[in-house]
């Protein structure tokens, strides 16, 4: 019997199907709160998981090799390869107890994604997180790119239906800012990674399945982006034009390797920036910065 889960995040309905009896898709952890019941609505994507003894990649040309993220909790290498527009996302796990290799085949023209998994021992059933790290992140980068969206390293909150996003270099205070807003009654969407999508005239900010986060699906209409600076005093400075654009751009998560993809990403980011206001904000870690930002809206 096939093991099927429907998940919805970032406005996309995704069907996750295991075609191998020994491969059980885990409904706990990352995807738990994004699971939705089977629906008559057509899925935006179907991800087909299958155990294989090896994956054939000889016709694929390697485009680039990635590195594990800093302080990553698992040991792996990853590669992006391509063959006639089909992209293979390969993760080689170095010391995973169950999985040797996992390869996802994605194509901008197809709603079906094939995921081939080579197990350490094919004879034993294995429970896997369907959007396991780092495959889930890589898949999301491409799927949302093809759906007028992008992922960004940031925290985001929803305050009276206004979405505010806080971004900047690692350690600058994204999580601290989220906590301050939570203390003031706002809802934290996430304090690490968000999806932004252009939907009609709006930019919608969504949380997404992440390991070690126990959150239900959340979203908000994004109104303002704040680039964080540590400062001895609170200030808010509007940014415009190429400066606003280039400073926000560096915080998006992307692994694009050809000029067409890069150009489309730049277009998506431009459309986002055109719909929201961008500010540099220097702040001391106390709730006064929340008041200052709220006053911006009260002042019109």
């Amino acid at each position: 019997m096939r093991n099927i889960i429907f998940v919805k995040f970032g406005g996309l309905l995704i069907e996750l199907i295991s075609h191998s009896s020994q491969l059980i898709l885990n409904k706990d952890r990352g995807v738990k709160h994004f699971i939705t019941s089977a629906t008559s609505k057509k899925s935006n994507y179907s991800i087909h998981f299958q155990v294989v003894s090896s994956t054939e990649l000889s016709d694929f040309k390697q485009k680039f090799k990635g590195e594990p993220e800093e302080n990553d909790y698992i040991n792996y290498d990853w590669f992006v390869s391509e063959r006639n527009g089909e992209i293979a996302l390969t993760v080689d796990y170095k010391d995973h107890e169950c999985i040797k290799q996992i390869v996802a085949f994605v194509n901008s023209n197809s709603k079906d994604i094939r995921v081939e998994i080579e197990l350490v021992n094919e004879n034993y059933p294995v429970h896997i997180e369907p959007l396991m790290h780092p495959l889930g992140s890589l898949l999301m980068i491409y799927l949302f790119h093809w759906n007028e969206g992008a992922l960004i390293h940031a925290s985001a909150v929803s305050d009276n239906c206004n979405g505010y996003l806080f971004t900047g270099v690692s350690g600058i205070g994204k999580s601290t800012m989220a906590r301050l807003w939570q203390e003031c009654g706002a809802e934290v969407l996430n304090d690490d990674r968000l999806i932004l999508r252009l939907i009609g005239d709006d930019v919608i900010v969504y949380n997404n399945p992440m390991p070690y986060y126990n959150q239900r699906a959340l979203s908000s209409s994004l109104k303002k982006i704040f680039l964080l600076k540590q400062s001895s005093q609170n200030y808010i400075k509007p940014l415009q034009g190429v400066l606003a654009y280039s400073r926000v751009l560096g915080n998006f998560i992307q692994q694009f390797y050809n000029p067409q993809m890069v150009h489309k990403h730049l277009e998506i980011v431009e459309s986002i920036i055109n719909k929201v206001s961008v500010y540099e904000v220097g702040f001391k870690p106390d709730v006064n910065i929340v008041r200052l930002i709220r006053e911006m809206d009260n002042d019109g």
Binding site: Y245, G250, V262
Partner: peptide
């Protein structure tokens, strides 16, 4: 105005 994005080792460096 304009931004120029380098492709370093085939990957865009934003």
């Amino acid at each position: 105005e304009k931004v120029l994005v380098p492709l370093t080792d085939n990957v865009a460096d934003m």
